[in-house]
Structures are given as structure tokens and as C-alpha cells.
Amino acid sequence: GLMCLEHEDEKVNMYCVTDDQLICALCKLVGRHRDHQVAALSE
């Protein structure tokens, strides 16, 4: 899978609806997407 741009060791596994961007779990937990609307990726 694709790796996160901000956290190079994390794979992107969710999608930020607010930013129209693929993000990883760390982005959602501690990153700038924590208050955004996110959706899980169905692979």
C-alpha cells in the first residue's frame, strides 16, 4: 500500500473527507486531521 507522506513508516489506511486526502492512523490520532471527518478505506 501507499505510505503516509507525514509518517513514512505508516501505511495510509483512511481517507480524510475534509481535506480529500489519504491519511494514516497517526494523522488521525495525533496529526492535523484529528478533528476532521475521516472514512475508513475498504480494500
Rank of each mutant, 00 (worst) to 15 (best):
M3H: 13
A39K: 11
K11M: 12
D19G: 01
K11P: 05
E43R: 09
H7M: 01
C4Y: 01
I23V: 13
C24H: 00
H7Q: 02
L26W: 05
D35S: 06
M14D: 12
R34E: 12
E43G: 09
V30C: 07
S42L: 03
D9L: 12
L29A: 13
G1Y: 06
V38A: 09
A40V: 05
C16Y: 01
E43V: 02
E43M: 04
H36R: 01
E10C: 09
M3P: 04
M14G: 11
D19E: 10
A39V: 11
A39Q: 11
L41P: 15
V38C: 12
C27Y: 02
K11Q: 13
D9M: 14
H7S: 00
C27L: 00
L26M: 11
L41G: 11
R32G: 11
M14L: 09
R32M: 05
K28M: 07
I23H: 04
G1W: 01
T18K: 10
G31S: 04
C24Y: 03
K28T: 12
V30D: 13
C4T: 08
D20Y: 02
H33E: 01
V30L: 09
V17W: 06
L2S: 15
E6G: 03
H36Q: 04
C24A: 00
A25W: 06
G31C: 07
G31Y: 06
M3I: 12
A40N: 06
V17M: 10
G31V: 03
H36N: 03
M3T: 06
D35A: 04
C24R: 00
L22V: 09
L2D: 15
L5F: 07
I23A: 10
V12M: 09
L29E: 14
L5S: 10
V30G: 13
V12Q: 15
H36T: 01
L2E: 15
V17D: 13
K28G: 10
C27D: 04
R32V: 06
T18N: 09
N13S: 03
D20W: 01
I23G: 06
Q21I: 07
K28S: 10
C27E: 01
K11N: 11
D35G: 08
D20I: 02
T18F: 01
L29M: 12
L41H: 14
H36G: 02
S42Y: 03
R32I: 06
L41E: 14
Q37L: 03
Y15I: 00
A39N: 15
A25C: 08
E6Q: 09
R32Y: 03
